[in-house]
Design a protein around this nucleic acid. Sequence first.
DNA 1: GTTCGCAACGAACATTGTTCGTCGCGAACA
DNA 2: TGTTCGCGACGAACAATGTTCGTTGCGAAC
Lengths: 247, 247
Amino acid sequence: MTDSTSHVRDNPRTRPAKAPLSRQAVLAAALALVDEVGYAAVTMRRVAQALDTGPASLYVYVADRDELMAGVYDLALAAVELPGPADGDWRARLELLVSRLIATLGGHDDIALVAITRVPTGPQTLRILEETLTLLRAGGIDDAACPWAADLLDQYVTSSALELAARLRDQRAVTKAEGAAEATEEAMSRAARSELDAVYGELPAATHPTIHALRPAMTTAGRTSNTSAAWKLGVIIDGLLAHHPQP
Amino acid sequence: MTDSTSHVRDNPRTRPAKAPLSRQAVLAAALALVDEVGYAAVTMRRVAQALDTGPASLYVYVADRDELMAGVYDLALAAVELPGPADGDWRARLELLVSRLIATLGGHDDIALVAITRVPTGPQTLRILEETLTLLRAGGIDDAACPWAADLLDQYVTSSALELAARLRDQRAVTKAEGAAEATEEAMSRAARSELDAVYGELPAATHPTIHALRPAMTTAGRTSNTSAAWKLGVIIDGLLAHHPQP
DNA sequence: GTTCGCAACGAACATTGTTCGTCGCGAACA
DNA sequence: TGTTCGCGACGAACAATGTTCGTTGCGAAC
């Protein structure tokens, strides 16, 4: 405390009126930080700093970083609205729900990583699982298969959310690095293409004939477009309906 | 160097004949460590220690930890044998390839995490991608859809490998903690059940009617069994065949 | 026989998650 | 009203991480 103004800062009366700590405040601050600096860069110290306190203070409301992030994951899911009867039959509603999940999770950087390390069990997660299972049953999926189907859909949601997050991150990085010039479309596609398509594109036909032959279809455009996302979801749902046999 | 035997250890002639460093040696040591102590516990220092050297020496052959793990991932994939004509038609071969991938990756703890952070482009990965695409084309999947289908399968493989790794880890932890008594089946299922099934099981029917109704199907047995894995893969392939329409 | 490139490595740095012990406010209690 | 006590807040510290810097010394090339 060599700061000459410390007696002002330390005095609760003159302190800049910081909000009282609480679990919700910690989770909200962490979620905001995820959006701002990215999932990996959210450290206990940074969260504490955002709340104008020290890292040790967080451990009153949070067990450790993992549990913090699990809470953030659930908090993010709170923004997902469940489709209603006006949104169509069970299939249309399920597709809408899944795309909302991907958009929401993918919009918070790599927060979906939480669902890989541990199986989330927060209230919002359960709310969405409940709705998913209900829609699946409405679609005539066998009771015994419904949990598996929900699991499969969840795998898809998590993977797609991470893919979306990576795409948005690359996009931000490029548009920021391009000095704010024209950018956006031209530079983005070129930068991303030179990354992966160079690998697939310059692969000799002698050793990898099929990749070589499918080269035009393997361009980044195919990976980037959200046509691919809709296609994959369609495949899974069609598969659920076609696989009725042996549950 | 206060060690009185340092002049012996430092002398290359009397040194315990350590193998010369190389990229392959580093990757192999890291893979062995993944199996021994787990993916997360593989640090640069531990890898260096296994090779009887310092952490800084690794950076000659490896850019950083991420790239190291990418190399380990590819190295693990080298053990996967491609199904041959004797293994049946394209579908049987594809199912065999996928299950081998899951078993191999899942057998090396969380190494599959690598495929989530970055899209792997190692030679072994490309070898398997080539085979996957070939099998899909043999199955009549549209050329434009093949990359998407391979992507979908890869998502499934990665998620399932991580699930398998988690299951094996829990199993090891329980059998080790059980003092080497009877264990294995009884204790395992009880310990794992009390974790997740308690959440699903004690959920009130009023707020989550479908989860409550499906409770018997949501037991850990369903999640653990590899019937679930086969079912999911069947759904995906059936979906690929049923979704012919608009590629 | 000299020189030069580069693998090897010791030491250090900045950061990370987490724990310990203390401080002090505010509510419960006498 | 005066005392006590629980517990949130927090400063400081610890062990461990990934990575970099500068030096050293061997071996090959000229």
